[in-house]
Amino acid sequence: MQCLLCQRLIQSKFSLPWLLSWRPFTRPVVCAVCWQRFKRIERRTACPGCGRDQTVPRLCPDCQRWPAERPFHNVALFTYNDAMRAYFQQYKFHGDYRLRRVFEGTMQTALHQLNGDLVLIIPVTPSTLLSRGFNQVSGWLSDGLNQPRGLQTLAREKGVPQSKKVRQDRLRTPQPFMLALAAEQIQGKRVVVIDDIYTTGRTIRHAADLLLESGAKSVTGLTLAR
C-alpha cells in the first residue's frame, strides 16, 4: 500500500492488542511521517469563536471584530500549515480526488460528535463543479453522495476566487448563497455547516447568517483547517 501523499510504501504492523480487539483491519492511506506533519487543533484551548489553535480558550482578535451575540461558532480540526496547504493544492486545485480519503475518517468522526439536527455543506459554483468534477467537502463525507442540497450558490458570475483575495477584499464579499429549504425544515434546528478552510470566516458566516435569519436555533461551523 502506497502513501497517498508521498507515494512511499506503508508498512502496517499487526499488533496483539489489535488482533484481540476483533476490529476490522483498516488500510492506512497515509504514512506516519506525512500524518505527523498535519497539526491537530486542541479543542479545549482553541478559540471558542473560530476554532483557531491557541494556548488559552479566549476569543481571538479576529473573532472580537465580528458581532458576538450570534449563536454561531466554528470548530476546526487542523492548523492551516504548509502540509495542509500542500494537501489542498493537490486535492482541490490539481483535482486529485483520491486524497479525500486522507481526512474521510477524521471529518466523519468530528461530524458525528457535533450531533447536529441538520447538516449542510458549503456548495461550489456550478462552473467549478463542472471543471473540478467534485465538491471538496462532500468528498470527505460518504463518498460525496446523498448530500442534502440545502445551500445553493446564487446565479452570479464568480469573479476572483476567495483564495486569490486579500483579507479586506474577502470581508467585503457579498452574500453568495441562497437557501433551497423550506423554513419549517430549519426552524428551531441545530444546524452544522461544513466547509474546507476557515480563513477570515466570511464564507461560513454568510451561510450562518442566512440560516439564523430563517429561524435556526444555532449554527455550528465545521472546517478541516483554520
Partner: peptide
C-alpha cells in the same frame, strides 16, 4: 480513478494537469 457522477480521471499523469472524462 472515479469522480462523482460516473466520471473518471487519470491519477498517473496528474502533475501535467488533470486528464479526465470532463
Amino acid at each position: 480513478a472515479q469522480l462523482p457522477n460516473n466520471q473518471y480521471y487519470c491519477y498517473a499523469c496528474l502533475n501535467l494537469g488533470r486528464n479526465s472524462t470532463l
